[in-house]
Design a binder for these strands. Sequence first.
DNA 1: CTTTACCTGGTACTATACTACCTGGTTTAT
DNA 2: ATAAACCAGGTAGTATAGTACCAGGTAAAG
Lengths: 134, 134
Amino acid sequence: MQTKDIIELTGLDRETLRFYEKKGIISTPKRTTAGYRKYSDEVIDRINFTLMAKEAGFTLSEIKELLNLKESGVNCKTGRDIALDKINEVDDRMKSLRNMKKVLKKFVSDCENTGGPGLKRKCHLSFDVKKVTK
Amino acid sequence: MQTKDIIELTGLDRETLRFYEKKGIISTPKRTTAGYRKYSDEVIDRINFTLMAKEAGFTLSEIKELLNLKESGVNCKTGRDIALDKINEVDDRMKSLRNMKKVLKKFVSDCENTGGPGLKRKCHLSFDVKKVTK
DNA sequence: CTTTACCTGGTACTATACTACCTGGTTTAT
DNA sequence: ATAAACCAGGTAGTATAGTACCAGGTAAAG
């Protein structure tokens, strides 16, 4: 596979793909005699993992650490503990999201209760973290 | 309240507080005759909301938009719809987090199943998005 | 055989969110 | 009265994650 195939399969653009190579997210691919990059299927998996982890709020360097556990020569215990740490981070972030959702929902219902006919009244509300997080 | 009180109550540092003022997250405070900033209680709420929304993955400019709904003169319907959009974003992000957690948990159990005694064996696993998201 | 599509490396630019440092003025406690 | 704590404005620097543009080489299709 060459650059355009990866682009097509992952939705990344050329510059971003190159950027991820530079950052060590994907390994430096083999080359044709003309210098064109030749990718293996494995990069697709790595990019998909990267995109998912990014959506989950992880940075590229965290993602790189996870992707390179195999190559880094650590043992299963270390690998597992690193993954468990990430699970805790995910849980924390889920908690923040649930909180944020509560605050937003409170705001929505306040809007609906005070907005008058057609909710045309001027919005005079603010987001109240206290009411919800307490 | 002056700068140091806000710092104490929010955990922000002076530079970040100034940065948030410049970005419009908090309104420009009144001043003493000597030019010192005098803050009202309201800024604490705004900063707390900001910190929560940041944890939930929102950018400062999104947060600013939410915080300034009241001042922006929009009506309740518009305000509510903006909040509803954010709720959808929160839900999407939660989905990503649940996915990420599944992948991490799969990795952890694979480690435990193949790690040998004391999980001392070399970690040869990679994260497999396919197995989980499919 | 030439046009189109694709590829190369390199440099520079953008936005977001801080963070650090400097010079100097003001308040407060001893 | 003087040292410590606090404040001001301003400039510059950092890290992250791209994005844009350039000059030119290669491959495939008509």
